[in-house]
């Protein structure tokens, strides 16, 4: 799970709740524990793009869950209320994103406008932030859209405009929403796992091709056969054992094909 947060005050409750450790020497404040990572981007489009791209570069595995979390203004919701962005637009841009909502949750779904500066005018049913559009655009380069989400807690609205906002409240509001945030983190992580290919396939492919002699075409054929073997319930460890003494790549492909041939019919 990659969390991208604009401000330290927004990040603190998350860092504390998950016991994240700070990594020294990073160009941006970066916290982690096991597969949970949090980066503090700073405010605005350029900063959030850079922070997201930094995480993408360091952890290039595809289809990881990504969450942009922070505070936002809203035209209708109360302060302290959380919403998920279902439509993200940006002032001055025609590009619009619709993060597919696959997580069942009580959190309301709202439109969100990413602005270049804090908004003082509010439209009904509209949220306002300064990062989500750029975050979504960047994270979707490496992850399927369902796994990239934006959660915001309302910091200001027409009744309590941004001029009355006190930064220290950000931590309190985020902290109050930790159970719901945790639900999203858990669900998105599970969703990512559900579409993750069996990592043993690529490991086996790598071990076999390292023996040498595999052209690009034969490597692709081998990868395809190993995926089929896995789909057909073949034990990959046992399969590797059967291939130990098989000579050329051509013979190996034929051997796997032979092993699978009797299993290709649905039971």
């Amino acid at each position: 799970m990659n969390l991208v947060v604009a401000l330290q005050k927004e990040a603190n409750p998350i860092i504390q709740a998950y016991g994240l450790d700070k990594e020294q020497g990073c160009p941006l404040p970066f916290y982690f524990k096991e597969n949970r990572r949090l980066i503090i981007s700073g405010i605005g489009r350029a900063r959030v793009s850079a922070a997201t791209a930094y995480l993408m570069g360091r952890f290039p595995e595809k289809n990881q869950p990504w969450l942009n979390l922070g505070i936002a203004g809203h035209g209708s919701l109360n302060t302290g209320q959380m919403f998920v962005a279902g439509r993200i637009i940006e002032t001055g841009s025609s590009q619009c994103f619709y993060p597919p909502q696959i997580i069942t949750s009580e959190v309301p779904v709202s439109e969100l406008t990413t602005c270049g500066k804090p908004q003082k005018k509010y439209q009904p049913n509209m949220g306002y932030d300064m990062e989500a559009h750029a975050f979504y655009q960047t994270a979707c380069l490496v992850s399927t859209r369902e796994l990239v989400q934006v959660l915001k807690v309302v910091s200001d609205n027409p009744k309590q405009p941004i001029s009355q906002f006190k930064p220290e409240q950000a931590s309190k509001w985020i902290e109050a929403k930790l159970p719901e945030i945790d639900h999203w983190i858990t669900e998105l992580t599970e969703a990512a796992l559900s579409i993750k290919p069996n990592p043993e396939i690529n490991k086996l492919l790598s071990r076999i091709t390292q023996r040498g002699g595999f052209s690009t075409t034969r490597s692709l054929q081998l990868g395809s056969l190993l995926r089929q073997a896995d789909a057909l319930g073949e034990d990959l460890g046992a399969l590797e054992g059967m291939l130990t003494d098989v000579g050329s790549p051509k013979q190996m492909l034929a051997e796997i094909e032979q092993i699978l041939s009797n299993k290709r019919t649905l039971p």
Binding site: N63, G86, R87, C96, Y98, P100, Q101, I102, I103, T104, P108, V109, S110, E111, C140, T144, R145, E146, L147, A191, S194, I195
Partner: peptide, 26 residues
């Protein structure tokens, strides 16, 4: 239900980089 506006259904339906399997859940 959460109701969101769009100009044309293809803005929501057509973008690349969606996962049919994940969407099928909800």
């Amino acid at each position: 239900a959460n109701v969101l506006p769009c100009e044309h259904y293809k803005e929501v339906f057509n973008p690349a980089g969606q996962n049919f399997r994940l969407q099928k859940k909800n």
